[in-house]
Design a binder for these strands. Structure first.
Lengths: 333, 333
DNA sequence: CTGAAAGCGCTTACAG
DNA sequence: CTGAAAGCGCTTACAG
C-alpha cells in the first residue's frame, strides 16, 4: 500500500511521518504473507534437526533462533525424529515458506540434500558437502586430546562408543580416536550404540566391560552419561574404576561426576549457520563458505588414572572386579 | 489455479488424475504463501516458550511440533529467553503468519496475553486464565505425595526451592508443599532460586543447609540436579545425608543418583495444547476448554530416611556435619 | 461439471 | 515527489 514502510527514504520525512502516525492510530501492521507473495521473500528460515530433545540440538536451536530473530527472520522448527525420510518431507513442505534452510546433522543422503539445495539455499551443520554452505564443528583436536589424556593416565585399552554410525560427526570422532590411539600404542575397540541416547549408552556397558577397556570416549554427553549410569549400576565408581569422556559440553558440567567432555560450541554453531545462510541470501551469487569451529577438551571429574595402576589405601590393588566397592572420597570434589 | 488440489471431490476423478499427473511431471507444488493470502489461513502455528534449552520445554516442543505436523501444520519456534517483553514482540511479529499460538508458561502479564488472544487464537500451557484455552499440568497431587514420602521417611524440616517465583507452576507447587507440609506437621522453608537453572539450584545449597532442612523439593529437575551437585561438592551424599525431589521427569532418570521426581508429561502437554488449538480453529465459536494433566510422583534413588534416624554401620549416628564421609554402598543402585 | 474473473494485501516499475 | 496500475499464485463464488 504505502512506500512509507518499504522504502521510506524515497518519501519526504513529513509524508512518512504522517503515514506512520495514522497507521499507528489505526493499529495497522503490514501483512507479512502478502509481502512475501509479492516480493518472493518470506522472512523465514527453517531449522531441520534429528531430535530437539537432545541437548546438542536444543542448544543449537537456541543459538540459531536467537540469531535469526536478531536479523529479522522467524524460525520454523522441523524435528525429523532421526529419520531421513521425515527430513525430506519437512524440507519439501516448508520450502515455499522459507528463504533458506539450516540442516543440522542431516541423516538424508547426499543426493537428496543437493536436490533441496538446488531449490532453496541450504547451510548444513556437521556434514561436509562440497559446494554447499556448511558449519563444521571440528572435534578432532578435542578427541585427540582426550586420547592423550587417558593414555597419560595409564589406560591401555580404550573404547569409542559411536552413534549413529553413519553420521559425519561420529565418523570424524571415531577416526580421531582410532588414529591417535594407534599412535599412542593403545588398543582401541569400537562399539556402536545405535541412536545417540542415554538408554543406548547404558545398554552398551556390558560390551564395554567385556572389551577390557578401562576408559570410554563417547560420541556425545548423553551417551556418556548413559555409560556412567550403566557403570554405576554395576557398582563401579567413576573415575576410580573407569574413565568416561563425552562430547558437546552442554550437560557435561551438570552430571555426577562432572563429565570430561569436548566442547562443541553448539549455540555458536547454530548462530554461525544462520549468519552464513542469511549473508548468502544478500548476495546474488553467494560464495560457498565453510565455517569451522574447533572443539576443545574440557577436563572434569569423570577421568582418572587407569584402575590397575592405583594402589588401594589398604595396599590391595583395585580392580574392576572388586564390586561393590567403596568409592574413594578423594576422587570426588 | 486448479481445483484438483483444493477441492478434488468436486471434479471427476479422471480430471483430478490428469491434473495431478501433469503437476507431478512438471514438478508443481502448490504455493503455500499464495494460498495463505487467499484463504486467510496460514497452515502454521507458533510455539512461544521461555527457554528451549530447558528439558521441560524441549520435550514439550517435541510433542507439540510432532502433533502439529501430524495435522498438517508447520511450527514456528519463539524462544523468549525468560523475558516477558520478548514474548510480546514475538507474538506480534508472528501473528500475521500463524493461525494460532501455543504459549508455554508465559511470563507475560495477563492483560497482554488477552490482547494477543483477541487477535489470534491462543492456548496457554501452565497458566490458568479464564476464557482462554489452556493445558494445565496439575502437579499438586505429585507434590503432596512427595511431601508424604519425605514425612514418612522421618524428615522434619523440608525446603521448597522455587523459580521463577511468579510462575503459575511454581506457585502451585509451593502451595502444595506448604499445605501438605503443615498437615503433616513439618517445618517448611521456602527458598527462591531466581531462574530455573542448574546453577541457580547449586547456588542455593548454602541457604538450604543453613535452613536445617534435610530434604529439598525443587520446582523442576534442572534445579534439583543443581542442588544435588551443590550438596555433592560439600561432601554430602544423596540420599544418605540429604533427600532431593524434582519435577518434570525428563532428565530425572538420567541423573546420579536417579532423581525422585513428579512426572509432568511434557510431550503430552505440548501435543494436547496443539490439539486444543487446532480443534478450536475448526469451530466457528470454539468452546473454551481447559485440559488438565495429572503429574504423579515417581520414586527413585534420591530420597531416603532422614539422616539422624539412621544409625551408621559402626554404631555412630550419621550427621550431615560428618564430611567428607564415605557413601553407603547399599544406598546406591 | 468446468472455465474465467475477481480478490487476498502487499511491492514495484511506470506515469504524471 | 507521488498517484494508479499491474502482478505475486492461489481460492472461490459466479457464469456458462
Amino acid at each position: 500500500m504505502s512506500r512509507a514502510f518499504s522504502q521510506p527514504e524515497l518519501l519526504t520525512p513529513a509524508t512518512v511521518e504522517k503515514v506512520l502516525v495514522t497507521a499507528q492510530r489505526l493499529g495497522y501492521v503490514p501483512n507479512q504473507v502478502a509481502r512475501a507473495l509479492s516480493t518472493g521473500r518470506a522472512g523465514n528460515i527453517a531449522l531441520i534437526l534429528p531430535d530437539v530433545a537432545n541437548p546438542f540440538f536444543s542448544a543449537l536451536m537456541r543459538g540459531a533462533q536467537a540469531q535469526a530473530y536478531k536479523r529479522g527472520y522467524a524460525t520454523f522448527l522441523g524435528d525429523s525424529d532421526e529419520t531421513a525420510h521425515l527430513e525430506d518431507v519437512l524440507l519439501g513442505k516448508l520450502a515455499a515458506q522459507v528463504d533458506g534452510f539450516v540442516l543440522a546433522s542431516p541423516r538424508l543422503d547426499e543426493q537428496l540434500i543437493r536436490k533441496h539445495a538446488a531449490r532453496r539455499p541450504v547451510v548444513v551443520i556437521n556434514r561436509d558437502l562440497d559446494g554447499i554452505g556448511r558449519v563444521l564443528v571440528d572435534t578432532t583436536g578435542g578427541f585427540e586430546a582426550a586420547v592423550d589424556l587417558v593414555a597419560g593416565l595409564g589406560h591401555r585399552t580404550i573404547a569409542y562408543v559411536g552413534a549413529p554410525v553413519s553420521s559425519w560427526s561420529n565418523q570424524q570422532r571415531a577416526n580421531a580416536v582410532a588414529i591417535t590411539g594407534a599412535t599412542r600404542g593403545l588398543r582401541v575397540v569400537e562399539i556402536a550404540a545405535g541412536r545417540p541416547s542415554h538408554e543406548a549408552g547404558r545398554s552398551c556397558v556390558a560390551k564395554l566391560l567385556e572389551s577390557g577397556a578401562t576408559a570410554a570416549l563417547a560420541v556425545d554427553d548423553v551417551v556418556a552419561q548413559g555409560i556412567m549410569a550403566g557403570l554405576a549400576e554395576r557398582g563401579l565408581f567413576i573415575p576410580r574404576d573407569f574413565s568416561v569422556i563425552g562430547c558437546d559440553d552442554i550437560i557435561a558440567s551438570t552430571t555426577y561426576p562432572p563429565l570430561t567432555s569436548v566442547n562443541a560450541h553448539c549455540a555458536l554453531a547454530g548462530a554461525n549457520a544462520v549468519d552464513l545462510l542469511l549473508n548468502g541470501l544478500a548476495n546474488p551469487t553467494p560464495p560457498i563458505e565453510s565455517h569451522v569451529i574447533k572443539g576443545e577438551l574440557v577436563i572434569r571429574g569423570s577421568t582418572g588414572p587407569a584402575p590397575a595402576l592405583v594402589p588401594a589405601p589398604g595396599g590391595r590393588t583395585r580392580g574392576r572386579k572388586v564390586a561393590p566397592a567403596e568409592p574413594d572420597p578423594s576422587s570426588r570434589k
